[in-house]
Write a protein that binds this DNA or RNA. Structure first.
Lengths: 337, 337
DNA sequence: TTGAAAGCGCTAACAA
DNA sequence: TTGTTAGCGCTTTCAA
């Protein structure tokens, strides 16, 4: 017979014949409670099917045991995989994940964060290192620990878990140059409010400069990170009178879309146009031709972000993070000239 | 100068020169407050940078304005897209999304739900109609409204938002039979604890029966819903002495994996083996050959689940749901015999 | 190790 | 329309 309304800790204490305080301690700090008492509380909990009230607990303890994450979007596979790892790891550590997105509209992030703060969380996970002042102020004001993910930054002011987009882009551009390409286009993603995109452009440009090459501004194509963005990029570079021999894409999604557009326009990859990606999603090894890309530690970012953020909440000693490794994956979509 | 600690409603009331009650009402039910009072409260809120405490609000009002969703996994694109829509719609309706997964281990779902109930949410979104008794009991005991998504079921006992997997599978199998295939294999997904998979098998079998065909048990391959599962399915059906002429896949992910395996084994699609998918993810139109598949209302499921669940929370009148439409998408991967 | 009691910050019923 | 006040269910001193 379940009681008509949700049992409270007081019900548990009464049934167990102990005080409210002891019942609370039995659940939260069992080490401070005699085995006998513990056992009686345990039995009462079981008998009543008691479940703590998170709201009351949160109000009294000022801890919610939940972490919020704000992503640009949830439906990019790179984020979906990482979010999955984040959620699993948080779960193992005893935390829940509250999730939100701003659809690549950085200006909305403040509102989203405000709603989340109102809801109550112990810490937040953000993507990238560029956020509005409002975001950082809110975090400071409410003493919310946060970790910046995906892009690693040296600055000691914030914890970050990720890799250097600059370095990754530099490596790819160097590889492309070493294959003899001189006319190089970049499908970079949309730079506004996105530090990763800007780092990618800068890294690409730097590597080309070392090779004595130039990244022409008309060949930097800003497109969303999806298949269609890749298609558009191909259309764009084909519309000029001069044509590049390679298109470096900021995500594999763009690259796959670009390959598809080439196929429908009868352009051979890599013979007529080489295409490279970034991320090394599973699909990269499945398309024809297989994608030359950069492997990034998608799952590991989720796992480490979870651990880091929990460590911050719990006031643990924080090891200094190092930038994570990326790795060129050379496959057929990049040809030699 | 931000105050040293988070301002409370009492601080707001004091600054505005009104009572705590009025301040609360100004925020929650502004219609019951005089414009002048409202304005003073509004200014005090702004001046203090006040943000409500969700925990206190939840404790006093017994509402968290949070909805939980439990998915098998977050990194299947079909779920990622739907979750994104769910989150967006909930956000528009003023609710936050707490998200969890059980990695296709239905037996873990009870534990996950327990933790969520403890955390406190106003309602839950579940995938499929098959759940452990524990799940339904928990929902009942804590009077948690829930909606079952993806698979539509007639039963009036629960609200569901989705389509008929049986019908969808039936249509696909009918199409396949009408193309002259008689030796038909099915990569179904893993049936244990998954009503959608079982409905798919039943629907396929029923359609074939009408066509005078049989679905051989050795050609029902249970594999996870990912690329590798599709690859394995191809290996499996090639290992028998008798070979099917078509492989119907339960997800496009399987189908794409299957196509890839065929390519690496030198099997032509659809000449040597036809392959069909389910879901009509964006990728389905990008692979070679393009996938014959079933379009399912991925985004719409997320949107309607959000609306339904909020309606239930807010005690609104619930319209009867109808099964959602699916649609065959015929492309090149299915050949005629 | 335990019990008593004072909040945590808000909502909602009631009275004015 | 507003103010007053009693909780919501827990944690956490403090004393015993």
């Amino acid at each position: 017979m379940p009681p008509t309304s949700r049992p409270t800790l007081e019900d548990v204490a009464r049934l167990a014949g102990v005080s409210l305080g002891s019942a609370s301690r039995a659940l939260s700090i069992p080490a401070q409670v005699k085995p006998g008492t513990l056992e009686r509380v345990r039995r009462a909990v079981e008998q009543l099917g008691y479940i703590r009230s998170g709201a009351a607990q949160a109000l009294a303890s000022r801890r919610t045991r939940t972490v919020a994450a704000i992503y640009p979007t949830l439906d990019n596979p790179i984020f979906a995989v990482s979010i999955h790892a984040l959620q699993r790891t948080l779960w193992e550590l005893g935390y829940q994940l509250l999730i939100a997105s701003h659809d690549y509209k950085p200006e909305r992030e403040g509102d989203v964060l405000r709603a989340i703060v109102e809801r109550g969380v112990d810490a937040i996970v953000l993507v990238g290192s560029e956020h509005s002042d409002e975001v950082f102020e809110l975090a400071r004001k409410y003493e919310l620990p946060y970790v910046l993910t995906w892009s690693f930054n040296e600055s000691k002011r914030a914890q970050s878990i990720g890799f250097s987009y600059y370095e990754a882009a530099y490596e790819m551009a160097s590889l492309v140059a070493s294959y003899g390409h001189t006319r190089i286009a970049l499908c970079s993603g949309i730079a506004n409010g996105n530090d990763r995109v800007r780092a990618r452009i800068a890294g690409t440009r730097a590597a080309l400069k070392v090779a004595g090459l130039e990244l022409r501004s008309e060949w930097i194509v800003e497109q969303p990170f999806n298949f269609e963005g890749g298609r558009q990029a191909v259309r764009h570079i084909l519309s000029g009178k001069d044509r590049p021999t390679v298109l470096i894409c900021g995500t594999d999604l763009n690259a796959v879309g670009a390959i598809d557009e080439c196929r429908s326009q009868g352009i051979r990859v890599p013979e007529d146009l080489s295409i490279t990606g970034t991320d090394d999603i599973e699909l990269a090894g499945l398309v024809e031709p297989k994608l030359t890309t950069i492997h990034v530690p998608t799952v590991e970012i989720g796992v480490r972000a979870a651990r880091k953020v929990v460590a911050m909440i719990e006031g643990a000693e924080l090891a200094d993070e190092l930038p994570m490794e990326t790795r060129l994956v050379v496959r057929a979509s990049l040809g030699r000239l």
